[in-house]
Design a protein around this nucleic acid. Structure first.
Length: 582
RNA sequence: CGGGACGUAGCUCAGCCCGGUAGAGCACUUGCUUUGGGAGCAAGACGUCGCAGGUUCAAAUCCUGUCGUCCCGACCA
């Protein structure tokens, strides 16, 4: 490719609506342009990278035994109603009507379609295990698209679905995908690591997310360097808070005391009350699938909504409004408690940290009053003891007792053992060896291809621009003659090297633009080609060309060796990023 | 959905408070010079000031509405 013929609209200045560096570089390097919020056009360089990431995903999926299919993005709502997700996923589902007023949904994932296919086509245990995948455009009605490709309304995703006759088989399928994911991200030059993930309403503990550490990520990962434990904060557990919960028996009965104007944990912890936060019971009213529930936490703990959803099996949960609190408990937020006046039909979920708690202080369910000397198991009707709190950095790892750390990360992949949720609802059953009919045991496995692309930039860049891993770079080598006049030595050599490298199977872009050297250097570094060959009059006169790997120092090599050295460099990088092939 | 900010040339922005008919830098076109880190000089082209109403002799500027974009929040009672 000749740069003069290529469409690579680089930007010197930072577009005002790009906040994070990877988004800025996507725009500045001429990979994408925005059409509207959360919708982007991929320009030629962007497409080249996208296709490379996609190819890596495809190769590894095929290697893992998955078979590629392609499903419609436009889907009938009936199958979504059948799975129940028409309701549970309503917030992210795009819906539309055709000219006959028939409704359709735009697919965010394809469990319903693939399970419908399986219901029709998979009839015998002999047909399993089988794993179908596709790489296609997905749609999500994001309430707030942001960060360019990170959270978009339309994006590229690889989604795979495994079908097994047995639970053990499903675990083997899961493992194969888990391993394939490790290879995929490694080949993309990306440092991504698996963390235990929340399994939501489906339950079980076989779900991992693949995370790329980045301050701009939208997930918090809890991890322990000693034990290797790593989990999404939505799922993470620890040995508990550093300050233990008071449990000394006092024998005193609950006592009401006036706390005018005190409606926060902090103000009750301050003088004149001086009740430490860990000696308080925080009472929350949540509306879970339209019904009120009470949630009890230690005063210094934070509710983990994902855990709440998982423990209650709910699909929607939100804090109750002050009016709903009054309706449920007769008091406003700030004075809520679970000791008295709790309607029988309102379940009380108490966090495990409160088990055995004594001498606690909590709201009296009367505005302006609190209760002290509360013993939770004596005074409160707890219907469920569950883990609901959010782990904090510094708490002890369950395995080793070492302090846990927390960092932000970008989720680029997710593997999930689904079980029979979809196969039961959509009737994907098969006949087993004994002639019995069983639902298929499923797994689903996603990789955000466009998000992965941006995560690579987020991880691989410097002050000058993108530093592409060779495996996903739009071109592997950028030939940069500093003089482009036909017949000049740099131009002649560039043309010759272009032919040699191309013949060796290297992807080369020749910067034949009649631009000043500074412009060419800046552009090639912004776009991020892994290896640049500078061909200047001065060094050529000395019989040398410059080999400039992106982000590393220049090396002078004799003209006669230039092609061989460049080829060797690229091949070494390819091998480093794909050891299996080397 | 709540809050905040911003919409002026392809891009980054000024002008708005205090109304008088639109500017800078970069990019683009042409010419000359320059040629190892986003060149210099000269000339040129580029705008329904997001859109719709309103106030006014006069609106980018003031008022109302609307659309769009970005940020924060949507657990901490």
């Amino acid at each position: 490719m000749r740069w003069s013929q290529a469409f690579i609209p680089t930007l010197k200045e930072v577009p005002s609506d790009a906040e994070i560096v990877s988004h800025q570089l996507l725009l500045r390097a001429g990979l994408i342009r925005k059409l509207a919020g959360g919708l982007y056009t991929f320009l030629p360089m962007g497409v080249r990278v996208l296709r490379k990431v996609e190819a890596i995903v495809r190769e590894e999926m095929n290697r893992a035994g998955a078979q590629e299919v392609l499903m419609p993005a436009l889907q009938p709502p009936e199958i979504w109603q059948a799975s129940g997700r028409y309701e549970t996923a309503r917030d992210v589902l795009f819906k539309l009507k055709d000219s006959a007023q028939r409704e359709w949904v735009l697919s965010p994932t394809a469990e319903e379609v693939i399970t419908t296919l399986a219901a029709a086509e998979l009839n015998s245990y002999r047909q399993m295990p089988v794993n179908f995948y596709q790489i296609s455009v997905k749609f999500r009605d994001e309430i707030r698209p942001r960060f360019g490709l990170m959270r978009a309304k339309e994006f590229y995703m690889k989604d795979a679905y495994s079908f097994d006759a047995t639970d053990e088989g499903a675990m083997a399928s899961y493992r194969r995908m888990f391993d394939a994911y490790g290879r995929i991200f490694a080949r993309c030059g990306l440092q991504a690591f698996p963390v235990e993930a929340d399994t939501g309403v489906i339950g079980g503990n076989h779900s991992h997310e693949f995370m790329v550490p980045a301050d701009t990520g939208e997930n918090d990962v809890v991890y322990c360097e000693t034990s290797g434990y790593a989990a999404n904060i939505e799922k993470a557990a620890s040995r508990g808070p550093e300050v233990p919960t008071p449990k000394d028996r006092t024998g005193e009965a609950p006592e009401t005391f006036a706390t005018p104007g005190v409606v926060t944990i902090d103000s009750l912890a301050a003088a004149p009350y001086s009740v430490p936060a860990h000696g308080q019971i925080k009472t929350l009213v949540y509306i879970v699938d339209s019904k009120p529930v009470l949630i009890l936490l230690r005063g210094d703990d934070l509710l983990n909504e994902a855990k709440l959803m998982a423990r209650t099996g709910a699909t929607h949960a939100r804090p109750a409004t002050p009016e709903e609190c009054v309706q449920t408990l007769g008091a406003r937020p700030g004075s809520l408690g679970a000791v008295a006046r709790i309607p029988q039909d309102v379940p009380v979920y108490a966090d495990e940290q409160l088990r055995g708690a004594r001498g606690m202080t909590t709201g009296a369910n009367e505005d302006g009053f609190h209760l002290r000397h509360v013993e939770i198991e004596r005074d409160i009707r707890v219907s469920h003891w569950v883990d609901l709190r959010t782990v904090r950095a510094g708490e002890a790892d369950i395995a080793t007792g070492q302090p846990l750390k927390i960092r932000r990360a970008i989720e680029v992949g997710h593997v999930f053992k689904l079980g029979t949720k979809y196969s039961e609802k959509l009737n994907a059953t098969f006949l087993g060896e004994t002639g019995q009919r069983h639902p298929c045991v499923m797994g689903c496995y996603g990789i955000g291809v466009t998000r992965t692309l941006q995560a690579i930039i987020e991880q691989c860049h410097d002050k000058d621009g993108i530093v592409w891993p060779t495996s996903v770079a739009p071109f592997e080598v950028c030939l940069t003659p500093l003089t482009v006049t036909p017949g000049s030595a740099p131009r002649e050599l560039a043309d010759r090297l272009y032919a040699d490298l191309t013949a060796a199977g290297i992807e080369v872009i020749l910067d034949d633009r009649d631009e000043r050297p500074g412009v060419k250097f800046k552009d090639s570094e912004l776009v991020g080609f892994p290896l640049r060959l500078n061909l200047g009059e001065k060094s050529l006169a000395k019989g040398e060309v410059e080999l400039k790997p992106r982000g590393r120092n220049v090396e002078m090599v004799p003209i006669a060796e230039a092609a061989a050295r460049a080829i060797a460099w690229v091949q070494a990088e390819r091998a480093r990023l794909n050891p299996a092939k080397a």
